[in-house]
Write a protein that binds this DNA or RNA. Structure first.
Lengths: 185, 185
DNA sequence: AGTACAACAGAACCGTCGTTCTTTTTGCGC
DNA sequence: GCGCAAAAAGAACGACGGTTCTGTTGTACT
């Protein structure tokens, strides 16, 4: 077959990345072998290497996918015209946590400490999330608490910082709670 | 030599574990080979296996060492007779963060998501830290804010939870900031 | 419909790394 | 001191896993 149409190609990439995420969630970033990913995706090693240069490339794609998905959840609330107050915002974010993806998310944190490429991705996503939370909180301060926009932006900073921190901690707990066996302690 | 005296043996174990922590901080839990640890510790592979059953065993020892060290910092404040208020407590904990150990700490979180043994160690340490923070906050509520002990204990729970979460998030940031190259961004 | 060329399968390769085995050294009890 | 048995060194082993290579297949253009 000549090169797949772009849509199909992207579909395959996604198929592989999703299989990889499932494997990573089960066995960790480094412990999952290409063999496992081939089994999970139903494809072969050769095929995977037609879509990703190497395993590191695939890990990056998986990390991006997981982190982006979490950022997307936040994006909804950022655009909402009835902004929730910080406590409510945090509660909703926590409620939206998916245990399997939380595991991979925490794994990316660990990987980021030594892998510059992953570190860049993680730092980027954290910054984006902080910015979005800042927008959320600012909107709430302006629309519900009737602050001046300028003052609201300033006041929003530490609040957003804390919401993010609490959310990340909860993500860690979710990842620890739902360790490999899925046992809900 | 017949078995080393217990003190010497424990010293060797510590020497190896400390070298391992340095390596882990540089290259990650799984990416550090036994060869690197031998180079860092000045010992040989055979010697390491005389003190640790296998690499997993050594990783556990390193994880325990790092997490225990952080718990120890907290222990000081728990016993203090002039308990700091929660904000001050948090600030001091953050100030006591060592970048290199933060990296290994975050790595253990990632590892805990798939490695039951490490998970047990991490969950244990988190629980211990939460309990100690609870004691700290309770002491502050009783001694400084003059609450009734019973009520103080109850009120301390959510506060301790938040202090812990904020501390853990800050640990993550420290680990990300001081990535491998030690570049202070 | 036919062709051409990339996607795909899967076996084979090669390097790496954890572990073990052998030999040498050395600290401790008698 | 002497000897013994454990610890240390370091080479060798074996397995595993990422990557590549060789066909084969099938899809997208003409």
């Amino acid at each position: 077959m000549p090169r797949l149409t772009d849509a199909r190609k992207e579909l395959r990439r996604a198929q592989i990345a999703e299989a990889a995420v499932r494997c990573f969630g089960r066995n960790g970033l480094e412990r999952t072998s290409i063999a496992e990913i081939t089994a999970e995706s139903g494809l072969s090693a050769g095929s995977i290497y037609a879509h990703y240069r190497n395993k590191a490339d695939l890990v990056q794609a998986a990390a991006r996918a997981v982190l982006a998905k979490r950022a997307a959840v936040l994006d909804e609330y950022a655009a909402s015209d009835v902004p929730p107050d910080p406590d409510e915002l945090l509660a909703r974010l926590i409620a939206a946590i998916d245990p399997a993806e939380a595991r991979v998310g925490v794994q990316t944190w660990g990987e980021a400490t030594t892998n510059p490429a992953i570190r860049g991705i993680v730092v980027d996503m954290v910054d984006r999330m902080r910015a979005m939370l800042h927008d959320c909180v600012t909107a709430w301060l302006v629309k519900v608490e009737h602050h001046e926009p300028a003052e609201a932006r300033e006041r929003a900073t530490p609040i957003a910082h804390r919401v993010l921190a609490l959310y990340q901690a909860e993500l860690l707990y979710a990842a620890l709670r739902a360790a490999t066996g899925e046992t809900v302690s």
